[in-house]
C-alpha cells in the first residue's frame, strides 16, 4: 500500500524549476530513500511531501486510512531550543499534548533504548554535532510517529554514531513506521533495506 502517490509534481522558485514533473509512490511501512547529489532538489521534495512547502503544480495524494497520522521531521541542520536536553525533549511532548506525568518515563525509555540516556545529565551546548543529530532523531521519534522524514541523516555522524543511527532506524522500521530519508551517502544507503528513488537535476526516477 502507498502512503503517498505523487502525480506530475513540479516546484518552481524565481523561474527556476527545482522539481520537474515528478510522478512516484511512497510505500507504507518501508524505508524509502531519495538519493541524489547536492542541489538535486531532494530536500525540497521532502518538505513538499511533509507539507511544509506547497508545490507549484501537480498533486500529492496522502492515503492515511482516514486516521490522523503522526508525522515527524528531522532537519539536515537541526535547531534546538535554548534549554536543557531534557527540556528540549519535554517541549515536543508538550506540543503534542502528552500528559506531563508521562514525560519523564517516555524520555528515559526512548533514550535508554539507544544507550543515549547519558545525554540527560549533559548541557546541550556540550554535545557534539553527531550527538545533536542523534538527539534530533530521538526528539522526532519520542511520539512514535507513523511517518518519519529525515533529511541527510549522516551529516555530522562518525562511524560509531552511524551504527547507532542505523539501529534506531531499523528499530522504527520494524515497529511499522514509514521512513522517508533523503541522502547522498552511498555507505548509509547500503546499510538499510529500502526502496530507492533517484533524483537528478529535479527529475526523479526509480
Amino acid at each position: 500500500m502507498n502512503i503517498f502517490s505523487v502525480n506530475n509534481l513540479s516546484y518552481k522558485v524565481s523561474n527556476k524549476l527545482i522539481i520537474k514533473s515528478a510522478t512516484f509512490h511512497v510505500k507504507k511501512n518501508v524505508i524509502s530513500i531519495i538519493k541524489g547529489s547536492n542541489g538535486a532538489g531532494k530536500t525540497t521534495l521532502l518538505k513538499i511531501l511533509f507539507g511544509m512547502i506547497k508545490p507549484t503544480s501537480g498533486s500529492i495524494q496522502r492515503q492515511f486510512d482516514n486516521k490522523t497520522y503522526e508525522l515527524s521531521y528531522v532537519f539536515q541542520n537541526s535547531v534546538f531550543l535554548n534549554r536543557s536536553v531534557e527540556d528540549n525533549l519535554n517541549h515536543v511532548l508538550f506540543c503534542k499534548n502528552i500528559s506531563k506525568s508521562k514525560w519523564k518515563n517516555l524520555i528515559l525509555k526512548t533514550l535508554k533504548e539507544f544507550n543515549l540516556d547519558y545525554m540527560l545529565s549533559l548541557d546541550l551546548k556540550s554535545l557534539s554535532g553527531g550527538e545533536l543529530q542523534l538527539l534530533a532523531l530521538v526528539r522526532a521519534v519520542l511520539i512514535y510517529p507513523d511517518i518519519l522524514f529525515y533529511d541527510e541523516p549522516t551529516n555530522n555522524l562518525d562511524s560509531q554514531n552511524i551504527e547507532t543511527f542505523v539501529k534506531m532506524i531499523n528499530k522504527f522500521d520494524s515497529n511499522g513506521t514509514s521512513i522517508i530519508i533523503v541522502s547522498h551517502d552511498d555507505d548509509l544507503i547500503k546499510k538499510l533495506k529500502h526502496d530507492e528513488l533517484i533524483m537528478k537535476e529535479g527529475v526523479i526516477s526509480k
Binding site: F50, M52, L71, S72, Y73, F75, S78, V79, L81, N82, H91, V92, F94, C95, K96
Partner: peptide, 23 residues
C-alpha cells in the same frame, strides 16, 4: 530561526507563540 522546527511539530498556534515568547 525556529519556524521549520515549530512547523514540523504540527502543533497549535497558541503553543507556537508560547514557545516563541519563552525562547
Amino acid at each position: 530561526l525556529l519556524s521549520d522546527y515549530l512547523f514540523s511539530l504540527n502543533t497549535s498556534e497558541n503553543k507556537i507563540r508560547r514557545t516563541l515568547v519563552y525562547e
